[in-house]
Design a protein around this nucleic acid. Sequence first.
DNA 1: CTCATTTACATAGCTTGCTATTTAAATCCA
DNA 2: TGGATTTAAATAGCAAGCTATGTAAATGAG
Lengths: 145, 145
Amino acid sequence: MSYVRETSAGYLTNWAARLFARAIERRLAGGSSGPMPVFFALQDGGAMTQKELALLAAVEQPTMANTLNRMERDGLVARTPDPNDRRSARVSLTPLGRERARAAFVSAIEVNGLATDALEPEEREVFYGMMRRIIAALERDSGTE
Amino acid sequence: MSYVRETSAGYLTNWAARLFARAIERRLAGGSSGPMPVFFALQDGGAMTQKELALLAAVEQPTMANTLNRMERDGLVARTPDPNDRRSARVSLTPLGRERARAAFVSAIEVNGLATDALEPEEREVFYGMMRRIIAALERDSGTE
DNA sequence: CTCATTTACATAGCTTGCTATTTAAATCCA
DNA sequence: TGGATTTAAATAGCAAGCTATGTAAATGAG
């Protein structure tokens, strides 16, 4: 028993991440947590290319392509051809997309609150700091940064 | 900008979880991180039903069913019919499965080490404790516990 | 200017997660 | 005992992540 999951950072993190996603999706009833990073990035009316969105969301390009396809299908984003580069399109939120973004933020804030209520107030910044350091370490390992 | 991802517990946790999974999978080269909870549960030769495994791994029953199907296809687990309950089968690791489990633990320990190296030694237990409290809070919310 | 290289995106195919539903065996109760 | 209920697993279908590879436009080197 050299390996105990209760003290495996990866196991605990993966477990928590699934619970976070489920909690948000339960509140959105139909909506899902995948578009969240796109909502983040475009919330105040901006437009970005798919590549920029993938970078910001820290997902691979095909993952973002699929997410945007679903969002476009559901009327949440619009793609307008980039006049300067015919390979690219500028992605922006539709009015429906902005509405869903607001709803998603409400749910996310609620779930984050519920989770961080399990921490002492002074522990919360510590938690964010630890997470950011772990993320930085794992990105260094992947050489992707 | 009421919502900033750098201080969203869910966003950070999801991000870190993906990096953990990628880091382990990069090391396993072909093998993936999905069977990990099954490896955990059956590492010392035990046998369990699908339901018990799903409960332990904290995934839904169909998720575990799929994982076990892939593992069976790849020769990592064997299902032997339960003599007392014809609906059930006892799942156990094959010799190949045990071998892969060992390799997976090596990778997992390496990646966990790499991640927790980003924390001060005295912070590590604090991190596990925070994670366990957040997990408990989210499970309470889901009413699944 | 032309051809090679790079870049942005698309496509194919896989894993791992989920919900909803079905099937069949076991159990419970009248 | 026999019918209703519960339980274990299977199946269908979708989302979101990944890698590998293809395609077409833009860029750069001679």
